[in-house]
Design a protein around this nucleic acid. Structure first.
Length: 487
RNA sequence: GCCCCCAUCGUCUAGUGGACUAGGACGUCAGCCUUUCAAGCUGAAGACAGGGGUUCGAAUUCCCUUGGGGGCACCA
């Protein structure tokens, strides 16, 4: 039983609309969501759009779409920081008034030159505090000059800052290694540090679950909380998700945007399951967990500290598992849009739904993604199969003779179903003194144009008598003119 | 350059001082099944980064080294 006196769990996913959310972002969203749902708390969505220069058009929609696709529903928001400037200014002014911050008039050029110089001298790049020590006269002068200042935090020059991270434990940083970071930019927008602290406080966030990369900025935030006399939330820094080359996930690694996986035919349930296991585990053997099971068992205590490399092959396997678990009807329904999208243009649309429903059961256990379905199914829809005649001859048998006889026997078939076809063709193999492997293999090429396909009789049954006979005749034609090569 | 984090099979991970001959999963390889492919089943190979302590005993604790990652913007 959860105690009513326990403060409510309130967590947030706070992406910035400077790009499309990648797997790492979404994994963070998932962990926050699972944590909220597990504790019956609130999952809040907050858009950190305080960088107008890097803002990407449409990014917010993609963020929302990604969350919706995965079923990560939020309880509050989306809040937009760009619509909350009032709060940041208010807090900034109060910090200024209380002597925890100061105005800085340094030009970007000066700061850049300073950094270059520091780098050249192999010093850590750090604001030199120029405006922190301005004389009253200097200040008055700069104010009069019309330069719009930024607001900087007055970092304690000595001492250390300690905080507790739920996953990492006690962490201590020397204040002297931190510099006077900017709180409010000259365009009036807050930096991440200010906006984040202000909003987490105002929104009564209880736990901050976010990626490891933020760890170094926690002492700044803790100091800010202290200056404002606010109680900081609990911190839990999640291990990062890395690309196969062990570096931070980026476009270089191919598909990294969450929504791309939808287009590539991954199921949201598989995606959730897979992502949940990147940095979290239930025990030493459970791999497949439903959404409900994840909610039930999720806990911060079982999150690992080690960065995880995203392994697409395991995702493919897991997606295959989820695909096979679908009912045949559901699999057909999910496959339809992919067939419509990816089948060759010459295939007439709209596709025959009944026909599709007869095809997809043959593909269900062969597809790792829905995007593979059209590719596995194209011979069901094509009138001409572009295969090489040599495939008919590769068995080292009299292909023409075999197909001719098969054709004769099939022409008179009344009931065209898998059972009847097998009842005719299997004895025929014996009669022709051919192994089933060779004989059926030959027919497979003639019927499907490929050497690997779903089981022959079921395939033939779905294709129907007319199409099958035609394809066998076409094969005979090809065999009759084996030397003609199409360039 | 400075600061911080991390370290078990190729990859995801279990492991919280003795139950470890280090377990599971993906992938790989082999076999079975079989009309091909897939699925399924069985099996195999495969890891505690290195060195010092602590302890009767260390994958598990401490230190150092090494390696990897992240951070150091009027970006988040």
């Amino acid at each position: 039983m959860e105690s009513k006196l326990q403060p409510q769990v309130r967590v947030r996913f706070a992406p910035s609309p400077t790009g499309h959310p990648h797997l790492g972002n979404i994994r963070t969203a998932l962990f926050n969501w699972l944590f909220a749902r597990h504790h019956g708390g609130k999952f809040i969505l907050r858009i950190e759009d305080t960088d107008i220069a890097r803002k990407v058009e449409g990014a917010v929609d993609v963020i929302l779409d990604s969350l919706r696709w995965l079923g990560l529903d939020w309880d509050e928001g989306p809040y937009f920081q760009s619509q909350r400037l009032y709060y940041y200014h208010e807090i900034s002014n109060s910090l200024l008034k209380d002597g925890y911050a100061y105005l800085c008039y340094c030009s970007p050029q000066r700061l850049e030159a300073m950094r270059q110089e520091q780098m050249k001298r192999k010093q850590p790049p750090k604001y030199d505090g120029h405006c922190r020590y301005l004389t009253q006269q200097g200040k008055t002068q700069l104010e009069a000059s019309g330069i719009v200042p930024v607001v900087r935090f007055k970092m304690p020059l000595e001492g250390e800052t300690t905080f507790h991270d739920v996953i990492r434990g006690q962490l201590t940083f020397q204040n002297s290694t931190l510099d006077d970071f900017i709180l409010l930019k000259s365009d009036g927008y807050p930096t991440y540090h200010l906006a984040n602290v202000v909003d987490d406080h105002l929104m009564a966030i209880s736990h901050i679950l976010r990626a490891d990369e933020w760890l170094p900025s926690v002492p700044r935030h803790v100091l800010l909380y202290q200056s404002l006399n606010w109680e900081p939330p609990q911190f839990a820094h999640l291990p990062m998700i890395l690309g196969p080359d062990r570096s931070k996930l980026s476009k270089r690694h191919g598909a990294t945007t969450a929504i791309e996986y939808k287009e590539q035919g991954y199921l949201p349930e598989a995606m959730i399951n897979f992502l949940a296991l990147l940095g979290w585990s239930l025990d030493d053997r459970t791999e497949l967990l439903s959404r409900e099971e994840l909610i039930k068992h999720f806990s911060l205590g079982r999150i690992s500290k080690t960065a995880a490399i995203f392994d697409k092959r395991k995702l493919e396997w897991m997606n295959g598992v989820y695909l096979r678990r679908l009912s045949p009807e559901e699999f057909a329904r999910q496959s339809a849009p992919f067939l419509d999208r990816d089948l060759p243009p010459k295939v007439k649309r709209p596709l025959d739904t009944d026909y599709v429903c007869r095809i997809t059961p043959l593909l269900q256990e062969r597809a790792k993604t829905l995007a593979e379905v059209p590719q596995l199914a194209d011979f069901f829809f094509l009138d001409e199969l572009p295969y090489d005649t040599s495939l008919l001859l590769s068995g080292g048998l009299d292909a023409t003779q075999a197909i001719k006889i098969a054709l004769q026997r099939l022409e008179v078939v009344k009931t065209w179903d898998a059972g009847s076809l097998e009842g005719i063709l299997r004895p025929l193999a014996t009669e022709l003194k051919l192994t089933t492997g060779k004989f059926f293999g030959l027919l497979r090429v003639a019927i499907t144009g490929r050497t690997a396909a779903p089981p022959l009789f079921q395939t033939m049954a779905v294709l129907g008598k007319e199409r099958c006979l035609k394809r066998l005749s076409t094969a005979l034609g090809k065999l009759a003119t084996p030397t003609i090569i199409n360039y």
